[in-house]
Amino acid sequence: MSIVPHLSPARWRARIYPGQLPRMSTVRADLRADLAGFGEDLVETLTLCASELVANAIEHTLSGDSGGRVLRALFESEPGVLRLVVVDDGARESAPQIPTDRTEQEWLSAERGRGLLMVEMLAVRWGAYPVVPFPFCADLGTAVWAEFLLGGGER
C-alpha cells in the first residue's frame, strides 16, 4: 500500500509562463518543485507530459506569438487522481489530436506528432476543451488536460 500525501484544493497555484520554448526549463523546474514529496516516477511522468503539452501550446497556438502565454494548473480532480492542465492563448490551428491517418512506415519516419500519443500512453486519460464553451468564443483558448494516478495503481 502506498501512502499518498493529502491534497488540498489550494495546494498548487496556477502558473503562467511566457510562450517561449527557451522557458521550458523553468516550467519543468516549477513542476518538480510543486510535486516535491511525490514519487520519482510520477514526477518524471508529469514533467515529461507537461513539457509536451506546453511545447505544443507554444508551437501550435497564439501562445507562441509575441506576448503569448501558457498557463499550467495542477489539482486533484478526484481522490487519488492528479490532473495537469495546460491552457493556451487561442487557436492558430485545429484542436489538439493524435494523427490517425499515418501508415506504420510514416510513423517510423515522422519527426512530429508523437507527443500526444506519448501523453495518451502515460496518462490514465487525457482530453481538451475550449476555455469558454460558446461557439463565438472558440478561439479564446484551449485547455488540454491529462490525469495521473497518485497511488501508482491502475484503473
Rank of each mutant, 00 (worst) to 15 (best):
V144E: 14
A123F: 02
G68C: 04
Q97H: 12
P5E: 04
D30P: 08
M24G: 02
Q97D: 03
P135R: 14
S25C: 12
A110R: 04
F134W: 15
Y129W: 06
E40C: 03
R69A: 11
L84C: 00
D65H: 04
C49A: 14
L42E: 03
R13F: 10
L84I: 04
G115Q: 01
A50S: 09
L140V: 14
L46H: 10
A91Q: 05
P22H: 05
V70D: 08
A138Q: 15
E147G: 00
P96C: 11
W107F: 00
G90W: 10
Q105E: 12
L74S: 08
L53F: 14
R155E: 15
E120L: 06
W145F: 13
V85G: 01
A95K: 11
W107Q: 00
V70P: 01
A143H: 03
A57K: 13
G153N: 05
I16K: 04
A57S: 15
R28W: 03
G141P: 04
G39K: 06
L48F: 10
V119G: 05
R114H: 08
P79A: 10
P5H: 02
L31Y: 09
L116V: 01
L48C: 13
F75K: 09
S66P: 07
L62E: 12
V87W: 01
S109A: 10
T26L: 14
G153D: 03
A50W: 02
V70C: 10
R72A: 09
G39H: 08
A123T: 00
G153P: 01
A143T: 07
R15G: 11
G39V: 06
S8P: 05
W126A: 13
